[in-house]
């Protein structure tokens, strides 16, 4: 476990960065999800996994939990982070779905409505960026 988990986390970070560098929104989604999981595992390992995995309970007559009990704090942090990343990922996926509906494809290189190629010309842009049509209900 001591060696396997750090290597797995490193591999996940590398893989998620590779996915995020893609042009495809689906790859980016997978990258974001994997990055969140990798960060959670990183907290888990950085918070030191105890050898015996004993629960962090203070025995009668003692003032502190035994040294080999599991550290509950990183687990609380991860729990918070999982909830947050669930919400954010759900939002991101709906947003990407909307973008796919608008553009008809998921290639971010060709998503150029907000920054059309001719924005630096001192003449008005060909694509109106001030439309009032509503896309998200």
């Amino acid at each position: 476990m001591d060696v396997a988990l750090p290597i797995a986390i490193g591999a996940m970070f590398a893989a998620s960065v590779y996915m995020l560098l893609g042009r495809d929104l689906i790859r980016i989604t997978v990258g974001i999800l994997m990055l969140g999981v990798a960060a959670n595992l990183l907290i888990f390992v950085a918070g030191r996994i105890a050898g015996s995995g004993a629960p962090p309970l203070v025995a009668a007559g003692m003032t502190a939990a035994s040294a080999d009990s599991a550290n509950p704090l990183p687990q609380a942090l991860i729990l918070t982070a999982i909830v947050i990343s669930f919400g954010l990922s759900a939002f991101a996926i709906v947003l990407f779905w909307t973008a796919r509906r608008i553009f008809g494809h998921v290639d971010t290189q060709r998503h150029r409505l907000a920054e059309p190629a001719d924005i630096l010309q001192p003449v008005p842009p060909t694509v109106s960026t001030t439309g009032t049509e509503k896309v998200l209900a």
Binding site: L25, L95, F96, T98, A99, I102, F103, T108, H111, R112, L113, A114, E115, V127, T129, G131, T132, E133, K134, V135, L136
Partner: peptide, 10 residues
């Protein structure tokens, strides 16, 4: 949001 805003939002 309009179309351009969704693009920026991504």
């Amino acid at each position: 949001a309009d179309r351009a805003r969704i693009d920026g939002a991504v």
